[in-house]
């Protein structure tokens, strides 16, 4: 992959409108040299997959604050696989520690909790992308 600028799709899936975190993450990833495509609020798994295909994205990031992660996270992961995309899905937001393992078992590449530093955010996204590239 080399000099390819990493391209990340960020979106809010479903009804949850808490967008403070995802907007900050968008700027952090941009500052780190990535290309960020923020789809905005009220996206569906279909609209996110379509955008990822169209933009040839390297990763998808979802932000979840309404305790819907155990339902919507795996649903999104399934939709990505069903579309034949091999890119990591990262979830950020309010996710209790004990749910992280379950999410990881359903195909989510990484979970970023509240208080993650900018460095952690960037490293998590980069690691998830390179793990997929090596696989």
């Amino acid at each position: 992959m080399g000099d390819h600028q990493q391209r990340v799709i960020l979106a809010k899936l479903g009804l949850d409108g808490h967008d403070r975190g995802i907007k900050v993450v968008a700027r952090i990833l941009r500052d780190a040299g990535m290309e960020v495509i923020y789809l905005g609020l009220r996206q569906t798994t279909a609209s996110i997959v379509a955008a990822a295909e169209e933009e040839d994205a390297d990763a998808i990031g979802l932000s979840m604050h309404n305790a819907g992660h155990l339902t919507l996270g795996p649903k999104m992961a399934e939709a990505i696989t069903a579309a034949g995309l091999d890119i990591p899905l990262i979830i950020g937001g309010i996710v209790p520690d004990e749910d992280v393992e379950e999410l990881m078992n359903t195909g989510i590449a990484a979970v970023l909790g509240p208080g993650a530093s900018a460095e952690e955010v960037v490293a998590t996204v980069q690691d998830a992308i390179s793990a997929r590239d090596k696989a």
Binding site: G14, L15, D16, N66, A67, T71, L72, K75
Partner: peptide
């Protein structure tokens, strides 16, 4: 269908 996973949660 928008409500999946959100009913009674928050």
């Amino acid at each position: 269908e928008w409500s999946l996973g959100e009913v009674g949660r928050a």
